[in-house]
């Protein structure tokens, strides 16, 4: 699953560590999500969307 997290994170000048602290996961998890190596759970996706003030659909691009 692709996502726009890196672009949105850079736009509000957050480091991976800052974002990880905000949604209570490790920096490694943020890195893996950004690279598309790991799909987060629904609660984590909601927390990410809340940080960027957008919807989950705006954050993640589902590829069937």
């Amino acid at each position: 699953m692709k996502n726009n997290i890196k672009e949105l994170r850079n736009a509000i000048k957050l480091t991976q560590g800052d974002l990880a602290e905000r949604i209570e996961v490790s920096r490694q998890t943020i890195n893996a999500i950004e690279k598309g190596k790991f799909d987060p759970s629904l609660p984590t996706a909601f927390r990410l969307a809340a940080v960027f003030n957008c919807t989950i659909e705006e954050l993640f691009i589902y590829e069937s």
Binding site: V25, S26, Q28, F38
Partner: peptide, 8 residues
């Protein structure tokens, strides 16, 4: 106590 990736 780990996050979801650490548990995986």
């Amino acid at each position: 106590e780990g996050d979801e990736l650490q548990r995986k």
